[in-house]
Design a protein around this nucleic acid. Structure first.
Length: 315
DNA sequence: AAGACGAAAGTGGTTGA
DNA sequence: TCAACAACTTTCGTCTT
């Protein structure tokens, strides 16, 4: 069967079962045993060693209760760019535990200084405010953590390069979010960001172009494909329709009939066609609303697409 | 009655002189 | 700085289901 087998009697150490994408080459089983003490992953079915010398990322110490764990842990929370001091500063608790009345005044002064040091200087105050705004905006937009991180990094860079002067913090925060979204191929429209931030579309547009230029950030033009999953889920369209819409967009990209046209309009038209083809028709109005374009635009795009692509749509 | 369609006029942004 | 321009929107009347 196999050249390498593990002995039947194995130490009763931590053993976890898990399913892995690729299966055992020997018996096609997808169930594996992971033996931490040996650093081996073995097939549960035939015992073949799938992987050896796995690096154990866990701590080298062992703890038998909470107290020991607390004592032995040597790391804290991960640092993050979304907190102005990267979560590294100390705060002094307001609870006055066992402090004599003589010391109360002293403690009060200590706290005051601690706060002053924590948010000191215009830069820190700016960052503290900006990052709280950034957090508000991104939670309203429902953005993943990774994008929050990268947009706060962009904001920090903008601040370090003195690009904020003469611009509103809200504007720069919005622009940072816009850039971060585009970089991670989860674009939001200027309209969407403008709506939650009370910064005009025009201002965000101006600011993001300025920042991208100054910080040498290359922004590739957004593809309509990037918008499709989001729009499709808002319209509650099936995965099939979504896949079809993506296919339509790719086809039209090849044909080169998309240049110069707004990506949202194309995404909307492709979704409209797909929804009709799969019998889950959405009205142009509904699609226009989630895509942030007008019905007229959808009609124009959809006309172009059906004419040039031979999609076999009859309406 | 709702949705789709299309014409016409208007708007905001880009480009090139 | 200005005009030309393309894309897109607004508005509205008509047709289709």
């Amino acid at each position: 069967m196999s050249e390498k087998r593990v002995p039947k009697k194995r130490p009763k150490k931590k053993e976890t079962t898990e399913t892995v994408e690729n299966c055992c080459p020997e018996c096609k089983s997808t169930l594996f045993k992971y033996d931490q003490s040996k650093g081996e992953r073995t097939c549960r079915c035939c015992g073949l060693v799938i992987e050896e010398n796995i690096i154990d990322n866990g701590p080298e110490w062992r703890a038998f209760d909470h107290e020991q764990r607390d004592k032995r842990t040597r790391v804290g929370a991960p640092t993050t760019s979304t907190i102005h001091d990267q979560g590294l500063s100390t705060t002094i608790d307001w609870k006055n535990n066992n402090i004599s009345s003589q010391n109360q005044a002293q403690w009060y002064r200590l706290r005051k200084w601690q706060r002053k040091i924590r948010i000191s200087g215009s830069r820190e105050r700016n960052l503290a405010f900006a990052l709280s705004e950034l957090d508000r905006y991104s939670s309203r937009l429902g953005l993943p953590r990774s994008i929050r991180e990268s947009s706060s990094v962009i904001y920090r860079k903008a601040l370090d390069n003195k690009l904020i002067r003469g611009r509103s913090i809200e504007g720069v925060v919005s622009a940072s979010i816009y850039i971060a979204c585009r970089q991670s191929n989860l674009p939001r429209t200027l309209d969407e960001i403008s709506e939650i931030s009370n910064v005009t579309k025009k201002e965000i547009g101006r600011t993001y172009r300025f920042i991208a230029r100054e910080l040498n950030i290359k922004l590739t033009p957004t593809s309509p494909v990037d918008y499709i999953p989001r729009f499709a889920s808002e319209l509650e369209l099936s995965g099939e329709s979504q896949a079809k819409a993506i296919k339509i967009v790719n086809q039209s990209l090849e044909e080169g009939i998309t240049s110069g046209k707004g990506p949202t309009g194309i995404a909307a038209a492709a979704l409209y066609i797909a929804s009709v083809l799969f019998g889950e028709r959405r009205t142009q109005r509904d699609i226009a609303e989630v895509a942030g374009v007008t019905e007229v635009t959808i009609r124009n795009r959809y006309k172009e697409l059906t004419e040039k692509l031979d999609l076999g749509v009859s309406l």
